[in-house]
Amino acid sequence: MSMREKQLNNDLFQPAVISMEASEKITEESTSFWQDARRRLFENKGSVAGLIIIAVILLFAFLGPVLSQYGFDDQDVSRANLPPRIPVLEKVGFLGIDGVDIRGVNQYEMKNQKDNYYWFGTDALGRDQFVRVWKGTQISLYIAFLAAAIDMVIGVAYGAISGYRGGRTDNIMQRIIEIVIGIPNLIVIILFILILEPGILSITISLVITGWTTMARIVRGQILKLKNQEFVMASQTLGANSSRILTKHMFPNILGSIIITSMFTIPNAIFFEAFLSFIGLGIAPPTASLGSLVNEGFKSLQIYPHLVLYPAVIISLIMISFNLLGDGLRDALDPKMRK
């Protein structure tokens, strides 16, 4: 109460000396967007684990074939369908890598291969599965990266333009997508194989033709959603041009969806290749991909489980680590997630 009675007069006030610069002075070391993202990516345990697994798989994919004395197509049917056997570890019974098959017969003794070790066993043609699995990993990874790249480039651009432009452009572009999806892609793929012969090139082209539509539709949906939001309108009012709005305002906001969609594209592409192998149009033998190895091995699941086990585990590891990495990336890059 007594405070009120105190009289305020101008003498009590003095202009403060404030330098504009001082208040804006950056005392912390500056971090760019990407530095910041990297820091947050490495803080995320999951994504670090994902990165490490991918690195290890990549390493093996290129080193693995060198480690074995056999080439990926060295056949010898006298050593067909051997179960896996690894030195030292074979002594540890419960690991099941002692060369004894599921019927309890040591196939290495049966087939006079006592001195040999096939880490992942051998297939029906007596080929070293270890080499084949890692060779297959190379191909599957190539397909995975390729598919993701196509999605990123074609899918995102197409969807963004379609959604942002709207109106007639959107209408026409969406009808084109409908046509692309409507024409049975199996026919298109068979035609490509006729022209180009089966192999990595035909698979690449079929992916380019058909792989991007889902991404385009997702991105379009997101752009439609963002287009009328306040911050975009604000930016427009302030005179930002379309490309700035798209790259600076919209892109960071749809990054989450893009990454998630890519995480689906990768397994889809790997399985698409497996499906093509399934109907005999995939990678030309004797080359194999992880998908075609799983496909082939699955038939002997009940009797030679090792043929399907290793490629399936590696596919799953690849997927899981890509997903972990993807989650980390999204959190790291998404401005809204910044805390």
């Binding site: 194989i193 006729l194 012969e197 089966p198 149009l281 030309a284 033998p285 004797p286």
Partner: peptide, 8 residues
């Protein structure tokens, strides 16, 4: 090896 669909 050149695998082809049956008809082809």
């Amino acid at each position: 090896i050149k695998p082809q669909p049956f008809k082809q």
